[in-house]
Design a protein around this nucleic acid. Structure first.
Lengths: 250, 250
DNA sequence: TCTTGACCTTGACGCTGCGTAAAGCCTTAA
DNA sequence: TTAAGGCTTTACGCAGCGTCAAGGTCAAGA
């Protein structure tokens, strides 16, 4: 057993488990209860591992290898469809996570400029320490400057524009709030501006993710505190405006 | 409790579980032991659900929402990196599954032409029954013919070429086998031809997946039986040639 | 021959995030 | 007052093993 386990890179426990669930039985069991595997079993294990890598469940694998006239292609095609779904889902999640990171960073920028500035400087500093000397020697000082400017994936110009839009959102929120109606033109402009702000350092956008972020705003007191600084209840208003904007609410 | 559960779409059990692990405790518990939640808890749950959708584990979520000075951005960025890894992995799997499906279909084509022909005809027939009448009325007979020809993602011409390459592989295998060396020029030509055959109905290719398929060949007796029909031990030879071709072996 | 140590066995619990009973109190409408 | 429907806790189950624990088996050396 151990030989097989080491050969194929699986653990002894796994082999015992496969025996237990009837997926791979040893060729025979000797008088002292040891599991003895033959070449056939080695090959079978390879096949199992192959399918397992494809993320098929052990049960599905059992179906495929046990039943000689099982429709393998159909099973694989179903599995394929599931994997595609999974990937679509994953893509959505990845986009949302990235958006959340950016908006959190944005939240910091807006909520506490000094802190963020310090953070940014610290990163530039680290960058300097790591690569500065080497790059400076190779390409001169100008390159290093540019590199630092682009450090966070955006130019300093971009960075400033983003900050400005952030401020516009703030004033727009005050104005829109007076209408009292999250569906009003000004409120919808506000939501659009918020999207613009997100998109600034953003490539993919989905209404669902935008709406999800809005929901998060009211649940996270840092955001609540920030937007409510403009007007009391401002965060809730912004959320409602975004929900309407994204079509999640009427 | 039930109200909250219904409002937010989670089960009562989930709420109890979150209480149990200390993730979300109710505002208070009344004299009869009922869990009472307030607005603050509702918001907190929204936040939890948001993070949960991003596939963070409950433990990670707990870290984020409990510790006020926890480095959230870093946590999210780590999570982001993991998600990217996961997607890369998933892409690889998807490619392999697709390749496996195609090669299995190919295996059928080569291994049992009649069966496959019947299979193909059956699909065309089904296609006819489903859409034939409607399409024929709209676009005339010619369109339907073309549609059937493209049914399996390849034209009849493609199909024939693929079959032909399959046969070439067969003869090449016989020839290469006589050299006795899977690293020989002929054997490497064989491996290249095999890749060509795969690529015919294939868009993405990775050496790892090709090698994985080769390993599967010797583990699945249908393939073994087929390739060994050319020469005894042919399957093993083909595998070795592919492993060398893909750089998995020297 | 006996002991040592490496390897094998079965059995059992643990991990995640709940679903799903079972068995019994609490509340409310009829 | 009673029945119906909440609600509660307790506890097992799922997938795929990892990881002890407690003990049997094997070849080799003293």
């Amino acid at each position: 057993m151990n030989k097989l386990a080491h050969m194929s890179g699986v653990s002894g426990r796994t082999l015992r488990y496969y025996d237990e669930i009837g997926l791979l039985k040893p060729a025979r069991i000797n008088s002292s209860g040891y599991r003895i595997y033959g070449q056939k079993e080695v090959d079978r294990l390879q096949l199992i591992l192959f399918y397992r890598e494809l993320e098929l469940s052990l049960e599905e694998i059992a179906d495929i290898i046990h039943q000689p006239n099982f429709n393998e292609i159909e099973a694989l095609e179903n599995h394929y469809a599931e994997l595609m779904k999974k990937r679509a889902h994953l893509d959505k999640i990845i986009a949302t996570v990235k958006m959340t990171i950016i908006s959190k960073k944005g939240g910091r920028i807006m909520g506490d400029k000094d802190k963020f500035a310090a953070f940014k400087e610290k990163m530039i500093e680290e960058n300097e320490q790591k690569y500065g000397k080497e790059i400076r020697e190779k390409y001169g000082h100008e390159t290093v400057k540019t590199s630092n400017a682009k450090l966070m994936g955006m130019s300093q110009e971009d960075f400033e524009v983003m900050t400005k839009i952030g401020e516009e959102i703030f004033t727009l929120l005050e104005k829109a709030y007076t209408t009292g109606d999250p569906a009003s033109d000004v409120a919808q402009e506000l939501a659009a501006k918020h999207k613009e702000w997100l998109m600034y350092s953003w490539t993919k956008y989905s209404p669902e993710a935008h709406a999800g972020l809005a929901e998060m705003y009211i649940a996270d007191e840092r955001f609540t505190a920030y937007y409510d600084k403009a007007v009391k209840g401002g965060t809730g208003f912004l959320r409602d405006a975004i929900l309407i904007y994204t079509g999640q609410k009427r």
